[in-house]
Design a protein around this nucleic acid. Sequence first.
DNA 1: ACTTTCTTTTGACAATTGTCAAAAAAGGAA
DNA 2: TTCCTTTTTTGACAATTGTCAAAAGAAAGT
Lengths: 187, 187
Amino acid sequence: MNALYNCISQYHPISSGAWEALSKALTRVEIPRNSFLVREGMVCSKLYFLERGCLRGYYNLDGKEVTYWFGFENNFITSFYSFISRKPGIENIQVLEDSTLWGISFEALNELFDQHQDLERLVRIINEQYYIRLEERLMAMQFKTARERYEQLLETSPHILQRIPLGQIASYLGISQETLSRIRSQV
Amino acid sequence: MNALYNCISQYHPISSGAWEALSKALTRVEIPRNSFLVREGMVCSKLYFLERGCLRGYYNLDGKEVTYWFGFENNFITSFYSFISRKPGIENIQVLEDSTLWGISFEALNELFDQHQDLERLVRIINEQYYIRLEERLMAMQFKTARERYEQLLETSPHILQRIPLGQIASYLGISQETLSRIRSQV
DNA sequence: ACTTTCTTTTGACAATTGTCAAAAAAGGAA
DNA sequence: TTCCTTTTTTGACAATTGTCAAAAGAAAGT
């Protein structure tokens, strides 16, 4: 749980009371490689913090698996649309490496918000930071070529290249696996 | 200010005290077509609500204007990265039609958060909804063809087509103006 | 080591989209 | 209206990327 505390502190410090309440509400989840944290069609009722391991979010489109994010150590994980709207989502969250997570339910989190304003602030601030990341990704997708997006990934997240199969990275970059393979051979 | 109140209420109802405090902190801004609300290189210190008119956010890349959002009536407007991080941004916000906005500074907003938890909750919830929108846009950009993205725009935001020049829409969709023109002629 | 399976690369070709240049159309101002 | 400016369309061609199929390579299990 230390990892979570450290991670949180980088966004916004919270009172010891808030941290205590939060720790009590968290459930530890150990989940093996190739299993699923979330399946399409279900409501994702939990928000997770990934302490160890690696996950990916994908959905099925015309029989193809379309990867749109990866989660690594110290990331917050959920099927965001489903978690927020409490409706079934189309997203699958697959475990790519044996993982350890800490989970909290939507209900428990919202109860905590009522009792600890600093927790709600923390989540607001984290949301904002994740929004900024998403914005950057959208810009790259909108205005950069496949090669540029790959090179950007190399710079900002070289660890992805070592831990994730090429096909999934290609999908994440919005290109075909063959194209990514050819880009790599030319760099 | 009614429009803002109605808009807010759809996200999360707030107490009359919170609304009163918020209204007092807002500044009305009237701004004519073709002027700029925000220029690249400056810190965007305000969050706006657009009551009337229409704006676009764009930045310059290799001498080209790259449009990445449009704002219409009842949208919240800011240069998000700059507003949140309080650093200079690369974004320009241009007024496309004579507009009326209500603005609040970062500092004033954060003071309100300390005094009214329901205001902070409101903003958290609005952030979450905007995050979901952005996610949808990213997915479309990542996994749909130019034609599909155009058709999706036609369905979800046909008003854009009537109010915005084609070149800017093309940029927003991540394609060249010529391609968009050709797509349109074939639908 | 030897299969078996999964992942990555390569080739050939097609489809999509971009770029540059020019023409046509639409909209505003005098 | 006429002129001027901006916006949109069209043509020709090039560059990028996708698809299908097969081969090569790497990893995992026995």
